[in-house]
C-alpha cells in the first residue's frame, strides 16, 4: 500500500480507511477488533460512555486510537449539540459524528437538523463528521456549514443490506470535496471493497462486524477488502465495459481517415 496515500479529516491524517463501530458487541473484543481491522478511528456512542467502571466503553479502547464520539440518541440539533459538548468535556477530543434521528423504526437521519448541528458545532471548533441520507444538496450545505467529512448511509443502520444508495453515493463522491465516508448498512467486506473502488474515502462498519461469528476475523476481512478497493481505485480500473464496438458498419465510419 502506498504509504503516502493518507486520509485527511479535519487536518488529521490517517493511514487506515476503516472506521470501526464499537456499540454492539463485547467490550472485551474491542481491542482485538481494532488491531485486526487496523482501524485508527473508532466510533463511540456517548450514551454508552457516560457510566462508570466496566460498563463505560471508553475504558476498553486502546490508547492512540482516535475517538469518534457520536450523538446517537439525539432527536434534534439542540440535543446533538449538547451531546457533542459533553463529549468534549469527557475528554473525547474534537471529532464528533453527528447523528440526529427522530424515527425509532428505520433510524434514518434527519438531514435538516444535521445541517443545523453541523453549523453550530463547526463554529465551536469541532471536526464534524455528518451522518446523512445521501442527498447532494444536503451534502453541499453540510460542507458550507463546516463539515470535515460527510457520511452517507449505504442502507438503513444495522440492516446489512449493502449498497442500497450506491448511485447517490457515486454522485457525492463526484461532487463533494471533503472525504466521503460510507456509513451504515454495509453488510459484507465485498460491499466495502466496492464503494472504495468507486472512490469513497473510507468505510465505517459496526453491525456487520459486531454480528459476525468471529468478530476480530471479520474486522480483518474488512481491513483487507478496504485496502483492495482503495488500491483498485488508485490503480484506475481497467477495461470493464463490454466491448460492443465491433459493429460491421461503424457509426463513425463516415468521418473517413
Amino acid at each position: 500500500m502506498n504509504s503516502n496515500d493518507k486520509l485527511t479529516i479535519g487536518g488529521t491524517e490517517f493511514t487506515s480507511r476503516f472506521i470501526l463501530g464499537s456499540g454492539k458487541y463485547s467490550h472485551e473484543l474491542i481491542s482485538a477488533a481494532i488491531e485486526r481491522g487496523g482501524a485508527e478511528m473508532i466510533t463511540v456512542a456517548l450514551r454508552r460512555a457516560n457510566t462508570s467502571g466496566d460498563d463505560n466503553i471508553l475504558n476498553h479502547i486502546p490508547k492512540g486510537i482516535t475517538l469518534l464520539p457520536n450523538t446517537s440518541g439525539a432527536r434534534d440539533a439542540k440535543e446533538a449539540i449538547r451531546i457533542a459538548r459533553l463529549a468534549r468535556e469527557l475528554g473525547c477530543g474534537d471529532f464528533i459524528k453527528i447523528e440526529v434521528i427522530r424515527d425509532s423504526k428505520y433510524l434514518l437521519p434527519d438531514n435538516n437538523e444535521t445541517i443545523k448541528a453541523t453549523e453550530a458545532l463547526a463554529k465551536e471548533g469541532f471536526k464534524v463528521m455528518a451522518y446523512m441520507y445521501p442527498d447532494l444538496n444536503v451534502a453541499r450545505d453540510l460542507v458550507s456549514a463546516g463539515a470535515s467529512s460527510v457520511m452517507p448511509l449505504a442502507a438503513p443502520i444495522g440492516t446489512n443490506m449493502g449498497l442500497a444508495t450506491k448511485e447517490f453515493i457515486r454522485i457525492l463522491i463526484d461532487e463533494i470535496d471533503v472525504p466521503i465516508i460510507v456509513d451504515a448498512g454495509i453488510g459484507r467486506p465485498s460491499e466495502a471493497c466496492q464503494v472504495m473502488e468507486m472512490g469513497a474515502d473510507a468505510v465505517m462498519a459496526n453491525t456487520a462486524v459486531a454480528t459476525a461469528g468471529d468478530i476480530p476475523l471479520m474486522a480483518d476481512a474488512f481491513r483487507q477488502a478496504i485496502i483492495a478497493g482503495r488500491q483498485a481505485y488508485l490503480a484506475g480500473l481497467g477495461r470493464v465495459i463490454t466491448d460492443k464496438a465491433a459493429a460491421s458498419s461503424p457509426l463513425t465510419g463516415f468521418l473517413g481517415e
Partner: peptide, 17 residues
C-alpha cells in the same frame, strides 16, 4: 450474559434535554 456471548449494558442513555 457474558457466558452466552452477550454484552450486559447498564445504560445507553444520555440526557440531552
Amino acid at each position: 450474559l457474558k457466558s452466552a456471548g452477550l454484552e450486559p449494558v447498564m445504560s445507553d442513555y444520555i440526557d440531552a434535554r
